[in-house]
């Protein structure tokens, strides 16, 4: 806070919000999901991958309650911030529905199927990058821009270095997971667990 008569309230709000999301938990789950998804594809257990990834949000919420809240405290953000978070969820849902819709079209139309087979990797890469960038823009979590760039590099590498999709995804997932572990380590060092009595 600047005491020169200027109080940057936006900065204060952003700092409070970001401190809540600098625990690396979301990164760990994202990285883990990407790796787990690839392992399941390799093991021909795609149904299990879908099931596990669907319940990951529940694990995420539990982890936040077990790790973040006892160390950082409990906060309710202002309605504007809650609205922004809901917008992110809505956009992600729209992106999911749109992807499914495009997938169905690709299967039904031979021309579209050919286009998707030829350009699928690029489409997936650009989609992943766009989603990460959109989340970064709406949430102010800047490291998601870096994940977006990494996603694009990972998918472009498939054609450039002739590596398999799963290899590229495992590398991407590992990088995100590693980043999350570092963030979590820093978070745990910075915010040791407070006494229950102190918190109340």
């Amino acid at each position: 806070m600047e005491m020169s008569g200027k109080i940057d309230l936006k900065k204060i709000e952003r700092r409070a919000y970001l401190s809540y999301h600098n625990d690396g938990i979301i990164d760990i789950y994202l990285g883990f999901s990407a790796i787990f998804y690839c392992v399941c594809i390799l093991a021909d257990m795609i149904a299990i991958a879908g099931g596990i990834i669907a319940i990951i949000p529940l694990f995420y919420i539990s982890s936040k309650k077990a790790i973040t809240v006892p160390r950082l405290g409990y906060v309710k953000f202002a309605p504007e911030r809650v609205k922004k978070t809901k917008n992110i969820m809505t956009y992600l849902l729209i992106a999911g529905v749109l992807s499914t819709f495009l997938g169905v079209i690709a299967f039904m139309n031979p021309n579209a199927r050919k286009f998707f087979i030829e350009n699928g990797i690029l489409i997936l890469g650009v989609s992943g990058t766009s989603i990460f960038s959109l989340v970064a823009y709406l949430s102010d979590i800047k490291r998601f821009y870096m994940y977006g760039a990494l996603t694009l590099i990972a998918f472009l590498s498939i054609n450039i270095f002739q590596i398999a999709l799963f290899q590229s995804l495992i590398i991407l997932g590992s990088l995100i997971l590693f980043s999350g572990i570092i963030l979590l380590y820093r978070f745990l060092q910075k915010y040791p667990k407070a006494d229950q009595g102190e918190r109340q």
Partner: peptide
């Protein structure tokens, strides 16, 4: 008063927070 100004500014931009959250954001002692 600077400490109270920090507390007020935090609460102005949030809906509500507990003591621990305010402590972490303001770096004040309990």
């Amino acid at each position: 008063e600077p400490a109270r100004l920090m507390i007020m500014a935090q609460l102005y931009v949030l809906d509500s927070a507990d003591f621990l959250f305010l402590k972490q954001q303001t770096d004040l002692t309990w």
